[in-house]
Structures are given as C-alpha cells and as structure tokens.
C-alpha cells in the first residue's frame, strides 16, 4: 500500500529523519513510536507532504507522491491531529464537510455521508450546528476523526490523535476506535509516544530514535525479541502490562487443558489478548471462562489457575528461544 524508502529530512544542522524505510500493507496499522524529537511526526508529515523530504521516495499504491499536486494528494489521505485542529469558525457539520466541499460533492451526498458517520461515532445529530468550542475534548476528537474519514480515504495518518485526552476518555475512544468497522479496512499510520497505545492499536510498531527506525515488528516481536538494549529499556517500565497486551490467547492455546466444565456465560474469542481474559475474570462471578477458538471450532473452559499456568509455560519457552 505505502512504501517509504531512504527518507531524509534535515532542519538546519540536525537530521530530524535520517534514512527511514518501511512498508505498510493494505489494511494494516503501523505505529511510529518514540520519544519527542525522534522524528516520528516529521516522518508522518512527509507522507502527505506537509513537510517536503530532502531525499528519499514515498510511493502510495506504487505511485510516487511527488508526482501529484500536494492539494490533490492530501484530499485523498485522512489526517487526524493531536489538538484536533477543528476550525473554530465552522460548525461541526461544516468542519466535517471540508473535504467533500474541496472535492466538489453535492449537498445530498455530503449530508448522507455525515449522518452515516455520526451514527458510527455515537454522536448526536444535535451537535451538527454547534461550534467546536461547545463540545468536550472527546467529542472534538471524534469530530476530528469524522472529518478525516468523511471522504473514505484508503489511507489514514494520525498524529498523536489521543494525546490531548484524559486517561478515561482515551481508554473509551481506544475501544471505539478498535470497534469501528470503517477503520478495519483502512491502512493507518499512527504516531504516538504512548507505548500502551501503540501496543493496543497497532499491528506493527516502528520504534524510532534519533531519526532512525531502531526496530520494526509486531508488538510481541518487540517485546520478546528486542533488537538491542534501547528497545528493551523503552518497553521495560510497563513490561508486564505490555506482555498481557501482546500475548493472544491463541498463543497460549496449546498449553490450555482441553474440555473442562461448560458454563452458560458468554464465551470469549481466542483472538482476545491475555489482558482482556484477565479482565473477564474480574467481572465474572463464576470461576470458569469459556474461550472459543475461531478456526478450530473448539471451546475450552478454564479456571484462573489454568490460565496463569499456561502463561508461565509460554514465557519460559520464549526465554529459551
């Protein structure tokens, strides 16, 4: 879908981005992760040419972005900013309609699309005639997302999209974000400094430092096979929580005992991460949880002790690999 090669950007004497290459497949979510000043935002902004690269190439669906007019290019790429960047002098409806207007859509088409999006984002229609400053931070961020999605671009760039929100709102929007079917078929590149957010939302993570990609891979790869000390240190602080996020029940499947007593409670999919299963235990009154494997058509009913045993088994094997 998108292929970046040897991208370089220098500001004065500092190399903000120093020869970055990566590829993102259709429908995949890549997180650019790193501390401030590591070049992740600069990299993102070069993708839609908000910043012009010094050298290197960017191809979207095999087409060099430099061959297109920047305005045309940007109208085809969704963009979500940290501070939402909503126009304070436009109503919510006008804000969402910016790109359709630039693309010359007629009013009926625009209105229909806006209504459809509002429903998906759980926003009341009464907000359409409100101005952004009349909305809460979480609502503003949803409008920002709607604005980016309205023209249904195949590619979505997100610059610390949830950075300005408090923890509770952020967790809620993370959940909605993952559940939104609009986003499931999109290719997303997400910039964040929040390790948990990257682990929760991304299929793959590119950990950046000093303008370079230190390691790129799935969350589990970064966690269990860090390339160097820097990667390990970066993830260390929240290691346990990250592991719970990174490990899927499918990874533990073979260590879980077959059978067990069936319960009447709703069963969980084995694609859920370890954290989600633990949370389920917290809220279930019974001791047992049923987990359904998607491909094997098989249900295993387990206890908390059995789950933890499988986890430590898995961890020991990872350490010896």
């Amino acid at each position: 879908m998108i292929k970046v090669e040897a991208l370089v950007k220098t500001f004065g004497a500092t190399k903000a981005v120093d020869g970055i290459s990566f590829e993102v497949a259709e429908g995949e979510t890549l997180a650019l992760l790193g501390t401030s000043g590591c070049g992740k935002t600069t990299t993102l902004k070069m993708l839609n040419r908000l910043i012009e690269p010094d050298s290197g190439s960017i191809a979207i669906n095999g087409k060099n972005v430099m061959d297109e007019k920047p305005e045309t290019l940007r109208r085809g790429i969704g963009y979500v900013l940290q501070n939402n960047g909503l126009f304070p002098h436009y109503t919510v409806a006008e804000n969402i309609a910016i790109v359709p207007q630039l693309l010359g859509w007629d009013k009926t088409k625009t209105d229909k699309r806006i209504n459809e999006l509002l429903g998906k984002l759980h926003l009341d229609k009464k907000y359409l005639s409100a101005y952004p400053n009349e909305l809460s931070g979480g609502q503003q961020q949803r409008i920002g997302l709607a604005r980016a999605l309205v023209a249904d671009p195949p590619l979505l760039l997100m610059d610390e999209p949830f950075g300005a929100l408090d923890n509770v709102t952020r967790a809620k929007i993370h959940g909605e974000f993952k559940a939104l079917d609009e986003l499931k078929r999109k290719t997303i590149i997400l910039v964040t400094h929040d390790v948990q957010e990257a682990f929760e939302l991304a299929d793959r993570i590119a950990l950046m430092d000093k303008g370079k990609i230190v390691q790129i891979g799935t969350p589990a790869e970064l966690l269990f096979h860090p390339k160097n000390k820097l990667v390990r240190d970066f993830l260390n602080e929240q290691r346990l929580q990250l592991e719970f996020r990174a490990i899927k029940v499918t990874d533990l499947w073979k260590y879980l005992p077959d059978g067990g007593r069936k319960t009447n409670t709703s069963s969980l999919s084995a694609e859920a991460d370890f954290w989600a299963v633990l949370e389920q235990f917290k809220f279930e009154k019974g001791e047992h949880i049923s987990i359904q494997h998607p491909s094997e058509e098989k249900v295993k009913t387990i206890t908390f002790e059995q789950l933890m045993a499988a986890y430590s088994h898995y961890k020991q094997l990872q350490a010896h690999e």
């Binding site: 940007r74 960047g85 630039l102």
Partner: peptide, 25 residues
Amino acid sequence: DASVKEAALAMGMSKWQVLFKVELP
C-alpha cells in the same frame, strides 16, 4: 492556531483557500 492551519493544509486546501477560509476569518 497553528494546528488549525495545519489541519486546513492537510485537508487539501490550497494556500489561497487557507488564507481566505481560515486565516482571514
């Protein structure tokens, strides 16, 4: 607000559109 200007550019507005639709108002 710089983020509003950036959003305008990122939505695909031209320099003149940014001036007349965002900066001047």
